[in-house]
């Protein structure tokens, strides 16, 4: 009995020693990520760590999108995963803002044909943010603003028709000379 208690106590002490080491390691990583986030917020770029958590990636994307480095920002976004939808929505919102800034630059330079695709990309980013977080009010306001610049229009083919999916029975082509698909 005493022997069993002795073994149990040694096991318990080892388990908690392991837990202490693990907890310390996690806290150390958190403090390191927080130091990175502070540096990025202060405007210094830092290398992305392989173990960076969603908050750190969020900070990286904010940093890059503010400096109009969208390809790298998209790369970071892909690494974020879906465990923090709030951060993911904010990241899409920041990318939308970067596209809007690009669009305004084109408008000021009077290149409207380049501004329209930028606004459309911004709308897609805001829409993605709202898809993740439907109650994200900042994204609603900026999406509304973008929509006023370039309004969404019904697709010409779809005008006056329901989505093709809603008409599964219309299997025959409308080509003349091919009534009901017959030769």
């Amino acid at each position: 009995m005493r022997r069993l208690v002795c073994i149990a106590l040694i096991t318990l002490a080892l388990v908690f020693a392991g837990a202490t080491v693990w907890r310390g390691y996690v806290l150390w990583m958190v403090e390191r990520d927080n130091a990175d986030i502070r540096a990025l917020a202060a405007g210094q770029n830092v290398a992305r760590r392989a173990t960076a958590n969603p908050n750190a990636l969020h900070a990286h994307v904010l940093f890059l999108s503010w400096r109009d480095n969208l390809p790298e920002a998209q790369e970071m976004l892909a690494a974020m995963g879906t465990e923090r939808p709030d951060l993911l929505a904010e990241v899409h919102f920041a990318i939308g803002n970067a596209q809007m800034r690009a669009a305004y630059e084109q408008i000021e330079a009077n290149r409207l044909e380049d501004a329209v695709p930028a606004v459309n990309l911004a709308k897609a980013a805001y829409r993605e943010a709202l898809r993740i977080l439907p109650d994200y009010r900042d994204a609603k306001v900026n999406l509304d603003l973008a929509m006023r610049l370039v309004r969404d229009m019904p697709r010409p083919e779809a005008e006056g028709e329901d989505d093709p999916e809603n008409r599964p029975r219309r299997l025959w082509t409308d080509l003349p000379g091919l009534p009901r698909g017959a030769p």
Binding site: V30, D33, N34, I37, R38, L40, A41, N53, N55, A56, H58, A59, L62, S65, W66, L87, E90, F93, A94, N97, M100, R101, D138, V141, N142, L145
Partner: peptide
């Protein structure tokens, strides 16, 4: 345009 979101510390 509403500004970018804040940086969020863990």
């Amino acid at each position: 345009l509403l500004p970018d979101p804040e940086f969020r510390l863990i």
